[in-house]
Amino acid sequence: MRPAAPVDEAAANGLSVEVRGLVVRRGRRRVLDGVSLQLAAGAFLRITGPAGCGKSTLLQTLAGVLDADQGSIRLGGRPAATALAAGQVAAVFQRDSLLPELTVLENLLLPLIAGQHLSRRLAMLRAQVLLAQFGLVDIMHAWPARLSDALRRRALLARVMAVQPQLLLLDDILAGLDSAGRALIGRLLSPPDGRVASIIATSSRVDDFAHEAELLLTLPEGRISPSEPGQEGSGCDTRP
């Protein structure tokens, strides 16, 4: 895959991503087979492809949930483990959801208090800003089970944004939403005043995040074919 479209590094927030020769096996099957890609800091990459092509596996490996059998991942120019340990990465996986035993506000506060060990006052301040930004103030004390799918998805996104990640990994977050919900989440991820993190988002639909993302990676069926930074083609199609 060729390098990302130019992004003003000085102005951009977020981590750059550099993946080289990534191989992930599941049993005898190579789900990822020598994948390489580069993403500049602050860029938005969307990955599309049919089910089972390795989109989720790629995100899980970037997030440190799965171990790579071969290859290396560098985030922000450092080994991935450093960025992960510093809490600079956040992810929403495919079937992720809010915790049903906590209200929307409590769901937002949880990673701030239990994960980042912020004081309750500071966490509450940060949560209130995000609730307002994501239009969730009216439902902050509601239980997730009582909310629509679109509202739950917005709250989920607010939760990961609360930890102020430098790299956001989103696995099929738009699945099941109507066009208005998709557009809203797209706008929330790329606000007019500038993006706050690098984003890699997967989707099974080609038109998801079409306006927001600068880069598109289309995966062929079955597996990601090997590709080297700077090389076009090799099974990976990138379009600015």
Binding site: V65, A90, V92, F93, Q94, D96, P111, G115, Q116
Partner: peptide, 19 residues
């Protein structure tokens, strides 16, 4: 585990299991 919640929260520093 099925929903990946434990993994996604672990990335944000929250040990959901012990919580």
């Amino acid at each position: 585990v099925d929903r990946g919640q434990i993994d996604s929260m672990a990335i944000m520093g929250v040990d959901l299991v012990m919580l």
